[in-house]
C-alpha cells in the first residue's frame, strides 16, 4: 500500500467515522447541533476530496472547539484516537517535507500498535486481571454492560479467566504481527472482532469505527519498516 493510498484511505474512513458520531449529536442541543453540523459538512468535503487539505485543517481546528465544549473528549479513548488520527492525517497533508509527512502518518501507526500492547501490559501486571476478577467487576458493577442480563456473566469465573487471558495475550502479542503483512492482517481481523464484541457488550461503537479507520496507517507502516 503506497503512502498516498494509505493516507487517502485513512482520511476517508476517519471522515465516515466522524460523520457517524456527528449524526448522533444532531438530536442534542442547538450549540452541539451547530458544531457537529459543521463537522459533517467538512467530513463530506474530505470524503469527496475537495479543497484538500483545508477541510482537514478546519476539522482539526473544530476539534479544539469541541474539546472546549465538553471540557475533554466526549467519549474517552475512542475520541482520543479519533483526535490523534485527525491531527496525524492533517499534518501528513500539510507538512512541507516528505519525511515529515511520513513521520506524522507513521506516528499514528505506532500509536495504534501501542494502543494494544500497553493495554495488554497494564492488565497483565494487575493480579486482578490475571485472576479474572477485574473482568468480573466490569460485568458486575461497571457502567458498561448494555443490558442487566449481561451482569450474569460475572458469575462465570472460568469463562472470565479465559476471556481475560485471551485479551491480554492478544494485546501483548500484537506487535509481533507486524513481522509480515499477512500476519498483520490476521492481527487486525482479530482486533476488529475484539472491538466488535466490545461494541455489542459494552456499547462502545465509536471504538470499532475509529480503530478501523486507523488500520491503513499501520498497514503502510509495516510495509515501510519491513
Amino acid at each position: 500500500m503506497s503512502f498516498d493510498h494509505a493516507l487517502r484511505l485513512t482520511e476517508a474512513l476517519l471522515a465516515l467515522a466522524l460523520v457517524q458520531q456527528s449524526l448522533e449529536h444532531l438530536r442534542a442541543f442547538r450549540h452541539e447541533r451547530f458544531l457537529f453540523g459543521v463537522r459533517i459538512v467538512l467530513c463530506l468535503l474530505v470524503l469527496v476530496g475537495v479543497a484538500s487539505p483545508w477541510p482537514l485543517v478546519a476539522l482539526a481546528g473544530l476539534s479544539l472547539l469541541i474539546l472546549q465544549r465538553f471540557q475533554g473528549p466526549y467519549n474517552g479513548g475512542s475520541d482520543r484516537l479519533g483526535l490523534l488520527a485527525l491531527w496525524c492525517v492533517t499534518l501528513a497533508r500539510v507538512l512541507p517535507v516528505e519525511q515529515w509527512r511520513e513521520l506524522a502518518f507513521g506516528y499514528l501507526g505506532v500509536q495504534l500498535m501501542l494502543s494494544y500492547f500497553i493495554s495488554g501490559w497494564v492488565k497483565i501486571v494487575n493480579p486482578d486481571w490475571r485472576r479474572g476478577v477485574a473482568l468480573r467487576q466490569v460485568f458486575a458493577f461497571s457502567a458498561y454492560p448494555v443490558a442487566e442480563s449481561l451482569r450474569g456473566w460475572a458469575g462465570r469465573p472460568r469463562l472470565l479467566v479465559a476471556m481475560s487471558w485471551a485479551v491480554m495475550l492478544f494485546e501483548l502479542a500484537f506487535p509481533l504481527t507486524m513481522i509480515s503483512q499477512p500476519s498483520l492482517i490476521v492481527g487486525l481481523v482479530v482486533a476488529a472482532t475484539f472491538h466488535l464484541v466490545n461494541a455489542c457488550l459494552f456499547g462502545l461503537n465509536r471504538f470499532f469505527w475509529t480503530w478501523l479507520a486507523a488500520y491503513p496507517a499501520i498497514l503502510w507502516l509495516q510495509q515501510r519498516l519491513f
Partner: peptide, 27 residues
C-alpha cells in the same frame, strides 16, 4: 475551564491504559 490545547495533549500523547484498574462506578 481547561484550555483546548491542554485537553488535546493527552490525545496526541496517549497513555492507552484502558481498564487498568476497575474503579468505583457512578450511577
Amino acid at each position: 475551564m481547561a484550555n483546548p490545547v491542554s485537553l488535546l495533549a493527552p490525545a496526541l500523547i496517549p497513555s492507552w491504559n484502558f481498564f487498568d484498574v476497575i474503579a468505583a462506578s457512578p450511577r
